[in-house]
């Protein structure tokens, strides 16, 4: 065993990369759930974003175009969910599951022609001066643009939800859609916009996988990341900064267990492999132990269909 082989600075830097896809997807889903809609189709939107982004980046040669296409593609997919649940009042859980299955199949179909291709590389930004700070520079200032975008998104979602009128309306719709409707807010329109935002974020998360973290396209490559994002929203009790914490914790343990294996730590591999999931479950249990506090944070109208006639 040689623990000195693990460089903490490099480890933290790589956990940020590893956590970015779930962070992006989770912060989008947080906004969706804050508006009172439960969209279980995160996995499907992520994988759709992964292939839309990959295809666009390969065709145009520009990773930026790829990320935009990913956001648009996944957002369009979330519109299907929006129409079904908001206008046709379909069951949100069933529709979300269907969206995941649809996204996985749909992406496999589009992706057939893109197997084995290489996307244009997204350069790491070396922020001048700051990136030369020892340790800290390595951890924080040598990432690709999307890592910073994801952090900015968390900050923006937090600020908007907490301090702005838009955030207040969104929360009102999520807490009590009948009251919000009585006040004259367009509940369905607001929810559809939230869903599209959630879709766009999930799409960015998927594209981060196919364009930066792996970078290549493989069918089914999200491999459950969307479900982890959903768990992290609950884990964070619908608070943006806790989403960041949850995503980095999960990403951190994932990266750490691989590093520990590579360093030859004598812990059975099974325990290392299950540790990210185990710890996520553990924290979820602790968080929900205090029932009143947990349910206090959940948006009161979460998962309920809204129809203006009553």
């Amino acid at each position: 065993m040689d623990l000195s082989a693990i460089n903490p600075a490099v480890l933290i830097a790589s956990l940020m990369v590893s956590a970015t896809p779930i962070l992006l997807a989770a912060i989008g889903e947080l906004v969706v759930e804050k508006s009172g809609v439960l969209n279980l189709g995160v996995e499907g939107m992520m994988i759709t974003g992964a292939i839309c982004g990959f295809a666009a980046a390969v065709e145009t040669g520009s990773p930026v175009a790829g990320f935009i296409a990913a956001a648009v593609g996944a957002s369009l997919l979330s519109l299907i969910f929006a129409v079904l649940t908001q206008y046709l009042l379909a069951n949100q859980v069933a529709t979300g599951l269907a969206l995941t299955l649809f996204g996985l199949g749909f992406s496999a179909m589009i992706g057939q022609g893109y197997v084995g291709m290489k996307p244009p590389l997204t350069p790491d930004l070396r922020i001048p001066i700051l990136s030369d700070i020892p340790v800290l520079g390595e951890i924080l200032f040598r990432h690709d643009l999307m890592v910073y975008v994801s952090l900015a998104l968390v900050a923006a979602v937090w600020a908007v939800l907490k301090y702005s009128r838009v955030g207040l309306i969104l929360r009102a719709v999520g807490e009590n859609h009948d009251a919000a409707h009585a006040l004259g807010y367009k509940v369905i329109r607001i929810r559809i916009l939230a869903l599209m935002f959630g879709g766009a974020c999930a799409g960015l998360g998927g594209a981060y996988l196919s364009l930066i973290r792996v970078p290549s396209w493989t069918q089914g490559m999200t491999a459950g990341a969307g479900w982890i994002a959903l768990a992290i929203v609950v884990f964070a009790s619908w608070k943006p900064w806790r989403v960041l914490l949850g995503a980095y914790l999960f990403g951190g343990i994932t990266v750490l267990q691989l590093n520990l294996q590579a360093a030859g730590v004598k812990v059975p591999v099974q325990y290392l492999s299950m540790s990210p999931y185990l710890i996520t479950i553990l924290v979820l249990v602790i968080m929900s132990a205090n029932r009143s506090r947990a349910s206090l944070n959940a948006p009161a109208s979460l998962g309920k269909s809204f129809h203006a006639s009553y």
Binding site: L209, R213, S216, T218, M221, T254, Q261, A262
Partner: peptide, 14 residues
Amino acid sequence: PAKEADAANALIQQ
């Protein structure tokens, strides 16, 4: 792919 990529990165870091 994501896990395989992370594993490759962890190995390279060491």
